[in-house]
Design a protein around this nucleic acid. Structure first.
Lengths: 189, 189
DNA sequence: GCAAAAACCTAAAGGCTTTAGGAAGGCGTA
DNA sequence: TACGCCTTCCTAAAGCCTTTAGGTTTTTGC
């Protein structure tokens, strides 16, 4: 019988597509085996199991997000940079909801360290260079920005802002205005 | 054989406890059947299935959160109220991680409308009364606050702030300072 | 006290993961 | 070219989960 030419990367890519189309929780070795017309145990030659596959999808998503973020930040500073990075997260989550969900999956310390996670922190730190925050406040601001980006995107994705006016587009724009204002007038300790 | 005296409420309560102890994704009819020493199909007399059970746990969590929020807001205004509500979310999530995860589960429109979700929006709106925001900006601010609370708590719960200094406690406190400052100096449209 | 409703049961089908062990395709080398 | 080995793929089987179907026992209420 002809070989299907499966590799770990092809599995992860197909898993990511499935996640975007049907939801991250629908990703299973069974579904991928059907997709590649191969028996389920065959997949164990390429990935160590279901958890391994999902972890790889998470790392793919984190890396894609970091790549896009870095590209968006190039040549921008201040509010321009802030908005650009925010839009990268938001647009990615809306275009690839399954991948975004994967990126939020808790990774064990080993996998987390090997992921693009730290690059995300770096990107937000880079934005802060356009504002005038004391060194001791940097980490607090990074956490607040990360939380707000993630929180907004995740609530919007869950449909929290559907069917209510004003539309989410406008709220997002005002959220960026607000974060910019906050960073320009960061409260004293 | 003696009856176990199972009711939907007891199932939901046990499910919530299991979620807090082992994680929301570990909640299953099988686990609860073992817990009550009853066969799995018996549970279908009380809940409509696994999804129904999880939805009920989500609604329980939303209601508990709203109750605590309301109690915390009584007699407070301004930054005091802001911090109090933020702490309710954060403390609840840390004390009941499984329930908190359940509360974040996407509900179908019918279940969402019957849940305590709208009360949460009301609570944040109440906080805004202590600040001077134009009517048209209220919804934007509600969304930003909700997103930031949820985002921070969810990142912290996922361990995002572990093993890095300064400690999360301090960042949280500064986040409350920052949100207060933001609401006092909300940027013009 | 008896009927009906409610709580519980076994049986069974179907989906998912994972391990064990066997067959076949393809590549490197003699 | 042909041999052998590694890798890819297979079937079989066990274990866990959900859900439906249909039967029995306990409890409740008239």
């Amino acid at each position: 019988m002809a070989r299907a030419g499966i590799t770990a990367d092809r599995l992860v890519e197909a898993g990511a597509e499935l996640a975007d189309a049907a939801g991250f929780e629908q990703v299973s070795l069974s579904a991928l085996a059907r997709r590649f017309e191969v028996s389920v145990p065959s997949l164990y030659a390429h990935v160590a199991g279901s958890h391994d596959l999902k972890t790889r999808i998470a790392r793919l998503a984190l890396a894609e997000l970091a790549d896009r973020g870095l590209a968006a930040l190039a040549g921008r500073a201040g509010k321009d940079a802030l908005t650009a990075l925010g839009n990268v997260y938001r647009d990615y989550a809306r275009a690839h909801p399954g991948r975004y969900a994967a990126a939020r999956m808790p990774l064990d310390p080993a996998a987390a360290a090997a992921s693009a996670g730290p690059r995300h922190t770096e990107m937000i730190r880079a934005i802060l260079r356009g504002y005038d925050l004391p060194e001791t406040e940097q980490t607090h601001a990074v956490r607040l920005l990360g939380a707000t980006f993630h929180g907004y995107v995740s609530l919007e994705l869950a449909g929290g802002f559907d069917h209510s006016s004003p539309d989410s587009e406008r709220s997002w724009s005002r959220a960026m205005d607000a974060l910019d204002a906050l960073l320009r007038h960061w409260p004293d300790e």
